[in-house]
């Protein structure tokens, strides 16, 4: 059975998203991580536009435009600026065992497809088969947050998780109602601003953005 080319393109961009998630998981340099995040955002825009075009859901064009502005330009720019101002361009994650994390990532993907199975059989969108990938992107971002020690990497993980959720919303239901999407975008933007302020506070206090300083509050 051959799929229409629009569906094939959507599958291609979904595969790209997953690949980028793995690339982020394997990337040690903080600055490259932000670039990968921007690339993931761009892929998301492309896939959303194709979905919008092939399904005739016009409001998805607005979501795509919002994603373009927010996740491809604004957030990476803010993050890059923060990285420069905080002088952490050369920060690398040294304590992460990349091959092991990638192997766990593979298991996560298998699990996500298992989880998506019962849900996507009820879907009638052209994109239902990508729901598994959406869940995988969310969980891989989660994995990245768990394994990273630098504050900036954790935030990129947090944002990548939101990318995955956005992709899930597009593939399962052609996007959430507009007012909700606007609210979510606002929350993400405000969140990044607050984190920006927060980074400066952390650095002022500890002279570094390494989170091992932030592990003293434990039950003893």
């Amino acid at each position: 059975m051959t799929l229409p080319w629009s569906a094939q393109l959507i599958h291609l961009s979904a595969a790209l998203l997953l690949l980028l998630s793995f690339a982020m998981l394997a990337q040690r340099r903080v600055r490259s991580l932000v670039n990968l995040f921007a690339a993931q955002g761009a892929t998301l825009v492309v896939s959303t536009v194709i979905v919008a075009w092939s399904s005739g859901q016009h409001h998805l064009y607005y979501s795509a435009a919002m994603t373009l502005v927010l996740k491809v330009f604004l957030l990476p720019a803010i993050l890059h600026r923060l990285i420069r101002r905080l002088e952490v361009q050369w920060d690398t994650e040294t304590l992460v065992n990349i091959p092991t994390v990638l192997l766990i990532g593979l298991l996560v993907v298998i699990f996500s497809f298992g989880l998506a199975q019962p849900i996507s059989q009820f879907a009638d969108t052209v994109t239902r088969s990508t729901l598994g990938i959406a869940i995988a992107v969310v969980l891989l971002a989660f994995l990245m947050m768990i394994t990273r020690r630098k504050a900036v990497s954790q935030v990129v993980g947090f944002l990548a998780m939101e990318n995955g959720l956005f992709f899930a919303a597009t593939s399962a239901t052609y996007g959430m109602p507009m007012v909700v999407e606007l609210g979510i975008a606002l929350d993400v933007l405000v969140g990044v601003f607050i984190l920006g302020i927060f980074f400066f506070q952390i650095r002022e206090q500890f002279e570094s953005l390494d989170l091992h300083h932030l592990e003293t509050l434990k039950e003893d």
Partner: peptide
């Protein structure tokens, strides 16, 4: 130091 750590934990855990 402790309050920054608490706030970071709060943000990340509740965010996730």
């Amino acid at each position: 130091a402790a309050s920054l750590e608490a706030a970071w934990k709060y943000f990340i855990l509740c965010g996730v």
